[in-house]
Amino acid sequence: MADPSDLLVDRTLVLLRHAKAVPPESMPDLERPLAPRGRADAAEAGRWLAAANIVADLVLCSPAERTRETWQYAASAGASAGDVWFDRRIYNAYPESLLEVLRDVPDDARTVIVVGHAPGIPWLADELASPSSDEARVALTEKYPTSGLAVLRHNSPWPDLTTNEATLTDYVIPRG
């Protein structure tokens, strides 16, 4: 019988809020592209991910234009991923729905980036971070603006991921 400690695998989850988009009055919400500042900030997020040596096995992205463009600009600036999935369940999702999406992640994916929206992305970061992450948690609960990203590490299989069990290792607000 396998030792349960042999099954523990370090996993990384990056929660990236989309970069600044054009105003909502200008067109249907799903079609809103990034504003010029958003394109610069998304590229800066990509540079930060590359500098931090975070290479995603999988990116889970909302199908909204602004989230798709956020990943596109991040990738063009150095962020990388083995695969990208666009999932409608991420669009304007709350933490419970985002956890359902994460439960469908293949077991061999060790690093996952979710590109989504507020309030779901900030709330999920706060819910997943363990109490030992209190100092970093304070910063993200005070403000989680566009292009903000949280890096959380945990040892649970994706279907078992639950609140208060991840360690918040980084919280940054990349600006281009």
Rank of each mutant, 00 (worst) to 15 (best):
G116V: 02
S80Q: 14
P63D: 07
L60G: 02
S62C: 04
P106M: 01
Y73H: 14
A43W: 12
H18L: 03
A51S: 15
D126G: 10
A64P: 03
G46N: 10
E96C: 02
A118K: 09
H18S: 00
E65I: 11
A109K: 09
T70I: 03
E96S: 11
S132E: 15
R37P: 00
S97N: 11
E135A: 15
R47P: 00
A42H: 05
A51N: 12
A64L: 01
V105D: 04
K20G: 03
E100P: 08
Y91S: 05
E25T: 07
E135D: 14
S130A: 15
V114I: 08
F86S: 11
S76N: 12
T141M: 14
A50S: 13
R89P: 01
S62D: 03
T67P: 00
S62I: 00
A51I: 05
F86V: 12
T67Q: 07
A79C: 05
A42S: 01
L124V: 04
A21Q: 07
V105Y: 09
D83A: 15
E96L: 11
P33C: 05
N92H: 14
R137S: 15
D108P: 03
E25H: 14
E31R: 14
E65K: 13
A139T: 08
W85V: 15
E135N: 11
H18V: 01
V22R: 11
D29L: 10
E135W: 12
E100F: 09
P24S: 13
A118N: 12
G38L: 01
R103K: 13
L99I: 12
L60H: 01
P131Q: 00
A118V: 01
V138Y: 13
I121M: 05
R110N: 07
D134F: 12
A45C: 05
R110F: 05
N53W: 11
R39A: 08
A136K: 15
R89W: 08
I121P: 00
V112Y: 06
L98H: 03
E127W: 14
S133R: 07
I54S: 09
